[in-house]
Design a protein around this nucleic acid. Structure first.
Lengths: 102, 102
DNA sequence: GAAATAGTCAAGTAAACACTTAAGTATTGA
DNA sequence: TCAATACTTAAGTGTTTACTTGACTATTTC
């Protein structure tokens, strides 16, 4: 699975997006991050792992506490993809292109 | 399902993202759009419907041909979400915030 | 050192998802 | 008008996903 696939897949789930939103306000331990979510800690951890694997989050364990923080670089992937699409449809003359494609 | 959920869910699938990429170069009929994908037309149509429901695409049927085109407004949703996250983590002093949150 | 805390691991489950095939409709071209 | 084209609809299928529960480990705290 490509990195970009992992990022978009990770953000495709509303729970994970909400987690990113919570963490955008600052780092939190898993247990604190889990508080607003009506699910088990184990489930939250599974989401955290997916977000981490995608590069949107980084986690670090000190003692028994694992702290999660947002990784800005992960978002650049999304940003750049959108930017590229826009570059495409802005840089051409719709009418002409449409005709040429037939 | 919220509009933003629909957009991110739609982009969470690699096939659908690829379709958006193809259509970024200009509008195409469903059959033409389907060409590069190793799956049935029916499957492609299902993806098109999901993309359309999310607001990333618009389609128009003239005669027996349904033409698909990218809808720039759909991407603004993604863009703005990323922008908001960034606004959060840029507008604060990480150290201080981290301490205050305990 | 015993009990509470914070996370980890593994196995299971129900629902959602990405397809398929097959039959059907509307439009176009010869 | 007949056949080909371009979808459309519906029903079915295997896989992935988002969870659960329960048992376990490591770290603090009292």
């Amino acid at each position: 699975m490509l990195p970009i696939d992992r990022v978009f897949h990770a953000l495709g789930d509303p729970t994970r997006r909400a987690m990113v939103e919570y963490l955008s306000a600052g780092p939190l331990p898993v247990t604190r991050l889990a508080e607003p979510f009506p699910m088990s800690l184990a489930a939250v951890m599974q989401h955290v792992r997916i977000l981490e694997a995608s590069g949107l989050l980084k986690t670090e364990k000190t003692g028994r506490v694992r702290t999660c923080r947002v990784e800005p670089a992960g978002f650049a992937v999304v940003d750049e993809w959108v930017r590229r699409r826009r570059a495409n449809w802005n840089t051409r003359f719709d009418r002409l292109e449409g005709l040429l494609r037939e």
